[in-house]
Amino acid sequence: MAKVIFHDHEGKTREVDAKNGMSVMEAAISNMIPGIDADCGGACACATCHVYVSDEWIGKLKPKDDMEDSMLDFADGVQDNSRLCCQILLSDDLDGIEVTTPESQ
């Protein structure tokens, strides 16, 4: 199990537990986290699961592949720490990961 800590743009925090191997997006959807729409269901074909990964966690993630990088072009407010949470798979190494959902447009 891995804990995921979701922060929204207003500062509200929600902590959820998820099974290793699940994506951060799946953890968000199964716990009704606002700001994660996941329109494509995790196929890396939209940018509706865009999050900002906290600085202390960004270096622990596998690098973005070309598809994720290209999909982020469709997200608003992209920053250096922007990721699509459908591409972040949970593991013991990511237990406690913190992400922030961007302000909805």
Rank of each mutant, 00 (worst) to 15 (best):
D66Y: 11
A18Q: 00
D92C: 07
M32G: 09
D39L: 08
D65Q: 10
S23L: 02
D66S: 14
D66I: 15
I58T: 09
V24H: 05
D76A: 13
E103H: 08
V53H: 08
L84F: 06
P63R: 13
A45H: 03
I36D: 00
D92V: 12
A43S: 10
D76K: 11
A38C: 01
D37H: 11
L90I: 03
D65S: 08
E103P: 01
G11I: 10
E68Y: 08
I97Y: 04
A27R: 02
C46Q: 07
I29P: 00
A43L: 12
D8M: 02
V51L: 07
D92R: 06
D80K: 13
V24A: 10
Y52K: 10
C85H: 05
W57G: 14
Q79S: 14
G42F: 00
M71E: 11
H9T: 06
P63V: 13
I36E: 00
T101W: 00
I29T: 04
S23Q: 03
D73E: 15
A27Y: 03
D8L: 01
G41F: 05
E56D: 12
C40G: 02
K19W: 09
H9S: 13
S30F: 07
M1K: 07
N31Y: 02
S30H: 12
D95T: 10
M22I: 00
G21Q: 07
C86N: 01
I36P: 00
